[in-house]
Simulated scan of single mutants.
Amino acid sequence: MQAYEAQRATQAAMSIASSLGLTAHYAAVLHNSNKLTLRLQPCDVLARVAPAAHQCAQLEVDIAQQLSEGGSPVAALKAPEVFVRDDYVVTLWTYYETVTPQAIPPADYARTLERLHAGMRRVELPTPHFTDRVSEAQTLVADHDRTPKLAGADRVFLAGTLDRLRGAVSDSGRPEQLLHGEPHPGNLLSTPTGPLFVDFETCCRGPIEFDLAHAPDEVGDQYPGVDHHLLRDCRTLVLAMITTWRWDRDDQFPDGHRLGIEWLGGLRDATAR
């Protein structure tokens, strides 16, 4: 978010927290892109704030609530509601201190993701398919107005890669289930109670390999029953998708343009292999 948007979003989160009897005198920004993540103090609550027009907070809360009730390794909600204030939606979560700055070992990462997947198989909510997310990327690539800095040859390359790998993953014949959607290391917290996943706004249905494509390579080696050929395709597909997001004129990911250039090169290398 731009500075003025972040200020309004922060005020909205603090106002909602105060209305619930939580003491929120100031807020520390933990992450700022298209959505703002705040640590409210001294109540020590984590607030996630997004523009009301571009969010799926209710689905995220519903999924997280069901997973938490089922004992899945997920961060707990502070309040199982979606709050709206001044054109922003706010969700409130438990804040967890990080136990160690070191990376979670691949075996622990894989076991935690396997437990999450087991819990997700018990969730019964209508959710998007992974191909819906690919379609969003394809639409973005095709829209010159939304991706004005994407060169013609790069646009053709991205469009072809997305289409080819979407078909390859869809036609794999692998079982599909509810997935986290983006279980990368930034969405897995090391807490005193063990690793916990956060951020369920990208949940979708698909093969487990689509989720594993977001995790470090060593995690896929530890996860049981993986189709490694499909995992390789999923990794390339995910790289094509996140590369596409970086070329969106409205993307606010930190240093996004540089990453878009860098990831395009990585994607060409991956498809060449």
Rank of each mutant, 00 (worst) to 15 (best):
residue 248 D to Y: 09
residue 271 T to F: 03
residue 116 L to R: 04
residue 77 L to D: 14
residue 210 F to C: 09
residue 226 V to D: 09
residue 237 L to E: 07
residue 229 H to I: 11
residue 64 A to W: 00
residue 20 L to K: 04
residue 76 A to F: 07
residue 205 R to A: 13
residue 70 G to M: 06
residue 257 H to A: 12
residue 251 D to T: 08
residue 195 P to S: 12
residue 255 D to P: 03
residue 13 A to E: 04
residue 87 D to Q: 13
residue 21 G to A: 03
residue 83 F to L: 15
residue 9 A to Q: 04
residue 149 K to A: 10
residue 146 R to G: 00
residue 54 H to T: 10
residue 195 P to A: 12
residue 135 S to F: 00
residue 233 D to Q: 15
residue 206 G to F: 13
residue 121 R to Y: 00
residue 271 T to R: 15
residue 218 E to W: 01
residue 41 Q to G: 01
residue 50 A to R: 12
residue 165 L to N: 08
residue 161 T to F: 05
residue 50 A to S: 15
residue 177 Q to M: 04
residue 32 N to C: 14
residue 18 S to L: 03
residue 137 A to C: 13
residue 4 Y to W: 03
residue 258 R to E: 13
residue 20 L to R: 11
residue 122 R to D: 03
residue 61 V to L: 07
residue 267 L to G: 12
residue 88 Y to K: 10
residue 138 Q to T: 01
residue 209 E to D: 11
residue 163 D to W: 05
residue 199 D to W: 12
residue 89 V to G: 07
residue 86 D to M: 05
residue 15 S to V: 00
residue 169 V to N: 10
residue 236 T to G: 00
residue 241 M to R: 15
residue 249 R to L: 01
residue 6 A to D: 02
residue 8 R to A: 14
residue 208 I to F: 07
residue 34 N to P: 00
residue 108 D to C: 05
residue 49 V to T: 09
residue 173 G to H: 08
residue 11 Q to D: 11
residue 199 D to E: 14
residue 28 A to D: 13
residue 198 V to F: 10
residue 62 D to F: 05
residue 174 R to W: 01
residue 248 D to I: 02
residue 163 D to C: 09
residue 5 E to G: 01
residue 126 P to V: 03
residue 177 Q to G: 10
residue 263 W to V: 01
residue 237 L to V: 08
residue 108 D to K: 10
residue 86 D to L: 04
residue 227 D to K: 11
residue 222 Q to D: 13
residue 239 L to R: 13
residue 119 G to K: 02
residue 41 Q to S: 13
residue 47 A to F: 10
residue 194 G to T: 04
residue 13 A to Q: 05
residue 200 F to H: 10
residue 63 I to Q: 03
residue 196 L to S: 10
residue 232 R to H: 15
residue 242 I to R: 13
residue 161 T to K: 05
residue 53 A to G: 01
residue 156 V to P: 00
residue 258 R to H: 10
residue 145 D to K: 01
residue 5 E to D: 12
residue 204 C to S: 14
residue 259 L to V: 02
residue 127 T to H: 06
residue 261 I to L: 15
residue 26 Y to N: 09
residue 71 G to K: 06
residue 21 G to W: 03
residue 162 L to G: 06
residue 184 H to A: 11
residue 98 T to V: 06
residue 262 E to H: 11
residue 85 R to C: 14
residue 81 E to A: 15
residue 167 G to R: 14
residue 2 Q to K: 08
residue 107 A to L: 04
residue 263 W to N: 15
residue 83 F to V: 14
residue 95 Y to P: 01
residue 128 P to A: 06
residue 150 L to M: 08
residue 233 D to W: 13
residue 87 D to P: 03
residue 268 R to Y: 08
residue 125 L to V: 11
residue 50 A to H: 02
